[in-house]
Amino acid sequence: MRVLVTGVTGFVGGHLSEHLLASGDQVVGVSASGRWPAELAEVGRSVRLERCDLLESDQAELADLIKRKQPEAIYHLAAQSNPQASLADPRGTWALNLGGTLNLLEAVKAAGLAKSPRIVLVSTGVCYGDPAPEHVPVTESCPLRPNNPYAASKAAADLLGIQTHLTDKLDVVIVRPFNHAGPRQSPRYVLATLAKQVVEVEQGRQDCVEVGNLEVVRDYTDVRDVVRGYRLLAERGRAGEIYNLGSGTGLKLTDALRRLTELASRPVEVRIDPARVRPVDLPLLVADASKLRAEVGWAPIYSIDQTLQDMLATFRALAAASS
């Protein structure tokens, strides 16, 4: 399959590229920087990378790229995907998450391909906000109550995707992944920062792990299972439909940290840092992904223990390389 991946140089984009290549796909990626990070140098040898800023590039330029590459599937990952960062820059978040999606969809239309490529729009389970108890685990019919610009802009992009499917007959599928983690994830995200700090304590570079609110419960899926779900949706998902993607199991962050400290090579002290307590946090968010499981045959393979072990291994390797 010929595929185009926006945001290809990011955390999820790298894992998706690896999965697509292993599945025999021909992959072209676009990113605003046009450069591969060092950790994705191996992927960069097999994926053609085009520099394209979804906000600044001329629509005709983007349409020409799509026309030249003739993708059978487009995975739209490019986004400002950090809820906390979105609170600091709401305008930039809305511009990229909604405006960038609009520009991509308009470019697909302008490319005038004989058949619309399958477009997998990657949204987020955070769109549901803080669901009422009767809506947990969360199905796709749960009301949307986003409580930060990231979630709200993604919810708006979902509506745009449905509208272009209905109005312009674009072959759009929307996926709402819940929390995911895995090797190479940025320490801007909670499991990654916990894993990184545990390694820092192991290395003697800091004396404790500093944490915020660990009482929240999240549905974590390994990123390698997540990207496998994306490709299954590209192959088997129904156009115009929305699919939740998650393990269906809640994980309290205190338990995640306990597992990380049990895997550590030395005792780890934990300290609460008030600066790490988020002003807006959801106490409980767990997915009901039965629709995805039933319609495309997806199920997670990686356990949370394996995910955490692999994250620690990645940060240990980085620490060893920098010492």
Rank of each mutant, 00 (worst) to 15 (best):
S247V: 07
L253K: 08
V268I: 11
Y243P: 08
L257S: 05
R258Q: 13
A264Q: 12
Y243C: 09
A239V: 10
R258L: 13
G246A: 12
L257G: 03
V268H: 03
T249F: 10
D255Q: 12
R238E: 15
S247M: 07
L232H: 10
E241C: 14
V268F: 03
G248D: 10
N244Y: 01
R238L: 13
A234W: 00
L245R: 00
A239S: 15
A256C: 15
S247D: 03
T249R: 14
G246K: 09
P267C: 09
G250M: 03
V268A: 01
R238K: 14
S265Q: 15
S265V: 12
R236C: 03
P267H: 10
L233G: 03
G248I: 11
L263W: 02
R238M: 12
N244E: 05
G237H: 05
L253Q: 08
T254M: 08
G240T: 06
G250L: 04
T261P: 11
E235S: 06
T249D: 08
S265A: 15
D255W: 06
R258P: 00
A234H: 05
R258C: 04
R236E: 01
L232G: 10
A264G: 09
G250S: 04
A239I: 03
G246M: 11
A239E: 07
A256S: 14
G250P: 05
R259Q: 14
G250D: 03
V268Y: 00
L232C: 12
I242L: 15
N244A: 04
D255P: 00
